[in-house]
């Protein structure tokens, strides 16, 4: 009896080691930030220390079609949808099964949900409308939700609310982000919300809830706030 148990244990151990060497789990980390500060919202909102005195209360977004590129060649890809939510730490890390021998110097992904998925009906997992990232009065996923307060906003509680989405031209908000990376076990991506928010005229633009030209513009600004700090 004992021998069988030992055998099984050994086989399992070998299998574990074997799989480890072939398919390393790389972790893609998302670090929402405000300049140099990190913006984690699980326990409370984030309050900036600068003269803008901005508060961020909610930040979540969809990432899809992650690809790795080496120079001009695509070396790895997956076709999943990930909902990243600064209010939920566990969503800030995505495990990717990337073989060890893959070489790459760039990461490419989409910020948002493509138009085909937007018209494909009810879906589960991160795409389940229960996640609160789906417009109900008008079909379509919300690619990015960014909410907070700024003294510049002459709104109730000085709030700004950006719900960015839309899959129809001319208001298609899907953006592709390409960033240089160095091969390592953890790929760290930063999203500098200070960079994004300071490029928006918050006095004029503080409420976006529908697909529109403004939604496209601000989606572009959020896409540009992604960076790797090499």
């Amino acid at each position: 009896m004992m021998r069988i148990v030992k055998m099984i244990f050994l086989i399992m151990l070998l299998w574990l080691i074997g799989s480890e060497t072939v398919m390393a789990q790389k972790v893609l980390e998302f670090h929402p930030s405000y300049g140099k500060d990190l913006v984690y919202l699980a326990d409370s909102s984030y309050q900036s220390n600068d003269e803008d005195s901005i508060t961020i209360t909610q930040f979540r977004f969809y990432i899809s079609d992650i690809e790795l590129w080496n120079d001009k060649n695509k070396t790895w890809e997956e076709h999943n949808f990930h909902l990243i939510n600064a209010n939920e730490y566990q969503t800030l890390r995505i495990s990717l099964a990337i073989p060890d021998d893959i070489v790459y110097d760039k990461i490419k992904f989409k910020l948002g949900i493509d138009s085909l998925t937007n018209v494909s009906g009810a879906m589960g997992g991160d795409l389940d409308p229960m996640k609160g990232m789906y417009w109900t009065w008008q079909s379509g996923y919300i690619n990015v939700k960014l909410e907070g307060n700024s003294p510049l906003c002459k709104t109730r509680n000085n709030a700004f609310e950006f719900h960015l989405g839309g899959y129809h031209t001319p208001f298609n908000c899907l953006k592709t982000v390409t960033l240089p990376i160095i091969k390592s076990d953890n790929i760290k991506l930063y999203i500098d919300l200070k960079k994004a928010l300071s490029s928006i005229n918050l006095k004029m633009t503080n409420q976006i809830m529908t697909p529109s030209k403004l939604a496209v513009d601000i989606s572009e600004k959020i896409a540009k706030a992604f960076e790797t700090r090499l």
């Binding site: 609160g132 109900t136 009065w137 079909s139």
Partner: peptide, 22 residues
Amino acid sequence: AVNNLEMQALAPMSNPTEMNET
């Protein structure tokens, strides 16, 4: 406004003047 029958029920369910639910 709704592009797929599967998403239709969300509209009256969430409308504040109809069912006002999530």
